[in-house]
């Protein structure tokens, strides 16, 4: 029931999409007939369950160019970016079974893999990631808050449109962090602005995005 409350209380932006083949999960009442959000989660499930290479090709076509540009931006060479984009996509194929669509959108999951590939490429040791079992082991934590209430793919699409509305000064700081490999201290030096200003821009940006995400629950 919460699922539907999202649709009625939130104006979902309309997205142009040319391919409806792999979006059978989307409810028709969510969107107008001709506008279907590409359901990348479904494509990953197809790989996990049916080793579907067509699904992989669709994912590759969307994500590989983006991963390559992302990695190239972070300062690695064209060849390294190309290799890491390919490696990321092969990992998507190999780890498809570990993808949980109630936990994250496909884009977020694939971005995390690409980011880890970049970090692991630069370091001797693997990037440490919080183990999901740990939260479950902390027995008095209320995990129920985080049950699937709205579909993560829809949430991603909505949050992405909200992120594009962030003030430029906040977006610049985030982009320097993700794409230029700068810590908040380096960003402060790079932009010649006080450390406190960088911190408050990060805080403002993340608080407003988090508020939008919570508003969907």
């Amino acid at each position: 029931m919460f699922f539907y409350s999202f649709n009625t209380h939130t104006k979902l932006p309309v997205y142009k999409c040319t391919d409806k083949t792999y979006a059978p999960n989307m409810k028709n009442d969510v969107l107008e007939d001709n506008d279907v959000i590409q359901d990348y989660s479904y494509l990953i499930d197809e790989i996990a369950n049916n080793q579907n290479k067509q699904a992989f090709i669709k994912l590759f076509k969307h994500f590989a160019p983006r991963i390559k540009t992302f990695i190239k931006k972070t300062g690695l060479s064209l060849n390294e970016a190309e290799d890491l984009a390919q490696e990321t996509m092969i990992t998507v194929w190999n780890k498809a079974k570990l993808f949980k669509k109630d936990k994250s959108a496909a884009s977020t999951w694939i971005f995390a893999i690409a980011r880890n590939k970049r970090i692991d490429h630069l370091r001797k040791q693997k990037h440490p990631i919080p183990h999901t079992e740990d939260l479950l082991n902390e027995s008095d934590l209320n995990i129920n808050n985080h049950d699937l209430i709205i579909e993560k793919e829809q949430m991603f699409t909505y949050i992405k449109s909200e992120i594009s509305k962030l003030p430029l000064e906040q977006a610049i700081v985030l982009k320097k962090s993700f794409f230029e490999g700068m810590s908040h201290i380096q960003i402060s030096k790079d932009l010649s602005i006080p450390l406190g200003t960088v911190k408050s821009r990060i805080r403002l940006a993340l608080t407003s995005i988090r508020k939008k995400m919570k508003g969907l629950h």
């Binding site: 977020t108 995390a112 980011r115 982009k175 993700f178 940006a205 993340l206």
Partner: peptide
């Protein structure tokens, strides 16, 4: 989660 979604959206 918020940070990862942000990175993914920018990518």
């Amino acid at each position: 989660d918020t940070i990862n979604i942000t990175g993914a959206a920018l990518m």
